[in-house]
């Protein structure tokens, strides 16, 4: 893993990618910092960072697009896969290399709370916790981008799809607020989710019976709930989907200074799921 980590990190900084990424994120965080903290006199750097989420939607895909796609395109994956290293080591090596590049502008922004402290009263705990939380959010974004990059050998497609996915993450709360809050809509939504889960199970392990059981159980349960517990069930789909919100924990923190441990765990777990999916995607390509 260390060999791949070192090579990846080196390659980010022998090409322009690493510098462009670090520079653009630093620039935009700096602009938010200047406007919100220095000009408007707002004492929390965390608020400036919340504006920087937007730049991550465009910057992280640039970081992740080549990770897996370029290896396949240049056929260098043959070297990695035929070497005595596991796919897990290859993928985690790349993941941590990207996370390190991601950390560079975050480290630079660690100076901002100090500047605030020099000019007035700094809230170091809040500001550094925000940067800490942003590392987890970045881990999630990077893992998602890496997964998408592993599905294609075109960097452009990887970048565009990653941007799309990250944009959906950000717009999630707005999108789901349009979900009708009726028992029928909840039943339909949960049935669809269970059918998708069943399809995933079938694709992953060819378990026909398991897939049918999951799809049937999900559908039947949600229809029964819609009939017998209509009142309570009508908002269930909305609750469920809003619990998946990526933006909410970070927004809670930057707006209300709620240090959401559950949110951090959610970021970490989702990042792990995407890393796992990337490993599976590479393995599967080998076998098909």
């Amino acid at each position: 893993m260390t060999a791949i980590y070192k090579r990846e990190l080196r390659s980010y900084f022998t090409s322009m990618t690493g510098y462009v990424y670090a520079a653009s994120v630093t620039l935009f965080v700096g602009i938010y910092f200047m406007i919100m903290n220095l000009k408007m006199g707002y004492p929390y750097f965390a608020s400036a960072l919340s504006g920087a989420v937007t730049i991550l939607i465009f910057a992280v895909p640039v970081l992740t697009m080549r990770s897996m796609a370029e290896e396949r395109h240049a056929k260098t994956d043959q070297l990695l896969i035929t070497a005595p290293v596991s796919v897990t080591a290859i993928v985690t090596g790349k993941f941590f290399a990207m996370l390190t590049v991601y950390a560079v502008p975050m480290l630079i922004s660690c100076l901002c709370p100090i500047v605030i402290g020099m000019l007035g009263t700094g809230s170091f705990i809040i500001d550094y916790s925000a940067i800490f939380m942003f590392m987890f959010l970045g881990a999630l974004f990077i893992a998602a981008g890496m997964f998408i990059s592993s599905l294609t050998d075109s960097q452009v497609i990887a970048a565009v799809c990653t941007m799309g996915l990250l944009l959906i993450f950000m717009l999630w709360d707005t999108i789901i607020s349009y979900i009708p809050k009726t028992p029928a809509a909840s039943a339909a939504g949960f049935s669809l989710i269970s059918i998708l889960a069943a399809l995933a199970v079938y694709k992953a392990c060819r378990g026909k019976i398991a897939a049918i059981v999951i799809a049937a159980a999900g559908t039947v349960t949600s229809i029964c709930l819609a009939i017998f517990a209509g009142e309570w069930f009508s908002e269930a789909l909305f609750w469920f989907l809003s619990a998946l919100s990526v933006y909410e924990p970070i927004a809670n923190f930057t707006n209300y200074f709620v240090f959401d441990i559950g949110g951090i765990i959610y970021y970490a777990v989702t990042a792990c799921v995407f890393v796992f999916l990337t490993i599976q995607s590479v393995q599967r390509r080998r076998l098909v």
Partner: peptide, 22 residues
Amino acid sequence: PETPPLYMDMTPFEYLSFAAEL
């Protein structure tokens, strides 16, 4: 392999050192 799996942004020595580590 048929297409040599080379990293274009490395020198042969760096590449071989990386391969040795792998």
